[in-house]
Design a protein around this nucleic acid. Structure first.
Lengths: 347, 347
DNA sequence: TTGAAAGCGCTACCAG
DNA sequence: CTGGTAGCGCTTTCAA
C-alpha cells in the first residue's frame, strides 16, 4: 500500500523569504498582519507571495502554536432539517468573521476519532448531540457552544413561548376544544435512570405552554384531548385518530412537531374532516414541508439559522478571549398559513 | 486579543516513551502498527499509552509526512436534501473504512480558505459544486471524486433511464397525452458562453428520455405539452397551469423534479383536476416531501446515499494507491405512490 | 529489533 | 523594524 505523494504547494515560507530577499520571520509577520513591518517591505513580501503562489501550511502553523481560525461543528445526522439549518447560519457567520468552518458527523458508535478536528480547531459547535454518549470534555476543543444540547453555553429556543403563541392563535380564532399532540413522553430518559437532572426538555416545555394557555383562557384541561407521539408522521396520524374519533372531538389541534402535524392533517382528512374548516391544525418547527404541503401548515418557526450565527459569534468571542453574554431562549414566531381557521360552530 | 492556551492532551509521544522505558521511535512504530516490534515491547508501550492517556497529534503527524485518514467533502448548501443524503452515505462508508470525514461548505464568494482541509485530507469528495467557480486543481487534494459535478471521476445518476422509467409507467397506465415539465432550459450556461463543453446535463437527459419514450411508443411529440421550469415549486405551478389550461390538456404530467411536481399537483387541484383521477403526475428526485405529501408523489428515486458510499470507497482506493474502476451511471428506481392512475377516458 | 539524528513549515521569543 | 534561534510532535532514514 504505497501512497502517492500529496504534492500540494511545495512552496514554503522560506521560499517566499528568499524570493523577497527578507527573512522568513518577516514574511511570517506580514502574513499574520503584524503591524511591525515597513510598508515597503510588506509590499515586497506580498509580491513575492503572489509570485510564488505561496499558501500557508495550516498544520505547521497550528503545530507551532498559531491560531487556526477554524471552528468545527459536531452533529449527528446532517440530513435532518434541524442541523443543516443551524449549520447554514453558522457557516454564514463564520464566513463574515473570516473563520473556516467544518462539519463532522457523529456516527452512531463513536469510533471516529474526533481528536484531529478537535485539536485543529479553536472552538466547537455542538448541534443536538445525542442525550446519551456525551463526550468527555477532553475530546472537545477548549471553547464549546451548543445548540439544543448540554454544555456550559447552550443555546435554546423558547419552546414554551412558541407553544403559547400557537395556542393563543387558536384561542383568538375562537377555539375552545383544543387537542394536543405532544412529543416524546419521557424524552431521553432511561426507564431505570431516576430522571437524572432537571434537564430542559422540548416536549415538556411545549406541553406546559399548552396547559398554561388553556388555564389562562379559563378552559378546562381534558386528558382525553392529549396524546403523545414520537415526532414521526406516523405517530401524528395515530394520535390524531385517537383525538378525532371521539364523540366530541376537538375543533383544533396543536401538534408539537411538523411531521406529526402533517400526519394529523392527513388523518383528519381520511376521517372526513376538512382542514381547516372542520379542524384547525398548528405545528411546531417550520420545516420546509410545512410551507410546501397543502393546506400549507400554520406552525411555529424556530430561528435555527439565527441560532447558528449567534453560536459562531459567541464561539469566536470566546476564542479571542472575550466573554460573550449568554443569550436567553431564542424567540419563536408563529407563521400563519392555511391550516387554521375559526371553528365552524363557535362555542 | 490574548488567547487562552488550548490545553488538549499535553502528553506527547516522548512522554509515553519515557513511561515505557523505550525510545520514541518504538512508540511510533507501535502506534502505526509496524510489525517490527517485539510483542513484549509492544505490550509495554500499549500499557504506557493507556496509562498516560496519550493521543496522537494529527497535525504533527501530517506535518511529518504521515497519512491523515481524513476525507473532506466540499459542497455548497447543506440544507438541500441532495447533498445531505450523499454525505450521509459517504459518512457511513468512511466509518466502516475507518476514515474520518469532514464536510466543508463552499459559501458563495470563495473567501474561505480551502487549503487547510485540502492539505490535511488525503482525498476530497465534491458534491454538486456550482457549475461556475470551479476550483483550481491545486486547491484540492490529490485525490478527488465528484458526485454530480465536473472532474476526472464523476459519479452520475442515470437521468435518461429514470425518465424512461417514469414515462414507461405512465404509458403502461394507458396515458397517451403526456405533458412534460423540464428543468432549466440552459442549465448553467452563461448566455455569452458558447455552450462550453458537451457537458452532461440532468435536464437535457431527462428531456431526451421523455422524447424517446414518446417516439418508441409511437406517440406524437407535441410542443404544447412541454414546459420549462427552474426546479422551484412555484415554477412547477406556472408550468402546470400552462399545460392544463389548454383546450385538450394532457392526462398525465412527467415533471423533472419533485418540488415542481408538488407545485404541479397543487395547481392541478386549484384548476379543478383531481390527482390522480383527472391527471397523473410523476416527479423526479424522491425528496422526503415526495412521500410526505398528499397524494404521495410517484417519483423517480436516485440512490444518493449509495453514491456517497461508492464515492468514498473509490476515494479510499485511490488514496491507498489502487485504481478503482469508474462505475457507470447509477440506476434509478421508480417509486409508485398515489399520484398516478390510469386515465379516466382510455385513449 | 531498536534508536539517534534530522527535519516537516511555521511561530514564539528575544536579540540586533 | 528585522532576523536569528528554538522548538511544536511526529515520522522519516539510517545506524547500531
Amino acid at each position: 500500500m504505497t501512497l502517492p505523494p500529496q504534492d500540494t504547494s511545495p512552496i514554503t515560507l522560506d521560499d517566499v523569504a528568499k524570493h523577497a530577499g527578507v527573512s522568513p520571520m518577516t514574511v511570517s509577520n506580514v502574513i499574520n498582519g503584524k503591524n511591525n513591518v515597513r510598508p515597503t517591505t510588506r509590499d515586497k513580501v506580498l509580491k513575492a507571495i503572489e509570485a510564488t503562489g505561496y499558501r500557508v501550511n495550516p498544520m505547521a502553523r497550528a503545530l507551532a502554536g498559531g491560531r487556526s481560525r477554524l471552528i468545527s461543528v459536531f452533529t449527528p445526522q446532517l440530513n435532518k432539517p434541524y442541523a443543516s439549518e443551524v449549520v447554514q447560519g453558522a457557516a454564514r457567520a463564520a464566513e463574515t468573521l473570516n473563520y473556516d468552518l467544518v462539519v463532522m458527523m457523529l456516527v452512531e458508535n463513536n469510533t471516529s476519532d474526533l481528536s484531529l478536528m478537535t485539536r485543529l480547531s479553536s472552538g466547537a459547535l455542538l448541534i443536538q448531540p445525542s442525550r446519551e454518549g456525551r463526550w468527555k470534555h477532553t475530546d472537545l476543543p477548549a471553547q464549546v457552544v451548543s445548540v439544543d444540547g448540554p454544555g456550559d453555553r447552550p443555546l435554546t429556543v423558547d419552546n414554551y413561548g412558541g407553544a403559547r403563541q400557537a395556542m393563543q392563535h387558536l384561542l383568538n380564532l375562537g377555539h375552545t376544544r383544543i387537542g394536543f399532540i405532544s412529543g416524546l413522553k419521557d424524552e431521553g430518559r432511561q426507564p431505570d435512570q431516576p430522571s437524572p437532572a432537571p434537564e430542559r426538555n422540548d416536549a415538556d416545555e411545549r406541553h406546559r405552554g399548552y396547559l398554561d394557555s388553556l388555564q389562562d383562557a379559563g378552559l378546562l384541561v381534558q386528558e382525553k384531548y392529549i396524546q403523545h407521539g414520537d415526532y414521526t408522521k406516523r405517530s401524528g396520524e395515530e394520535a390524531a385518530r385517537a383525538l378525532l374519533s371521539q364523540p366530541h372531538p376537538p375543533t383544533a389541534l396543536f401538534v408539537s412537531g411538523d411531521q406529526m402535524a402533517l400526519g394529523a392533517i392527513h388523518m383528519a382528512q381520511d376521517l372526513g374532516f376538512r382542514v381547516p374548516q372542520d379542524v384547525s391544525i398548528v405545528g411546531f418547527d417550520d420545516l420546509p414541508i410545512a410551507a410546501a404541503s397543502r393546506p400549507a401548515l400554520t406552525t411555529v418557526h424556530q430561528p435555527l439559522q439565527r441560532m447558528g450565527e449567534v453560536a459562531v459569534q459567541m464561539l469566536v468571542a470566546l476564542i479571542e478571549g472575550h466573554t460573550p453574554e449568554q443569550p436567553g431562549p431564542f424567540p419563536t414566531e408563529l407563521v400563519v398559513r392555511e391550516s387554521t381557521a375559526p371553528p365552524q360552530t363557535p362555542a
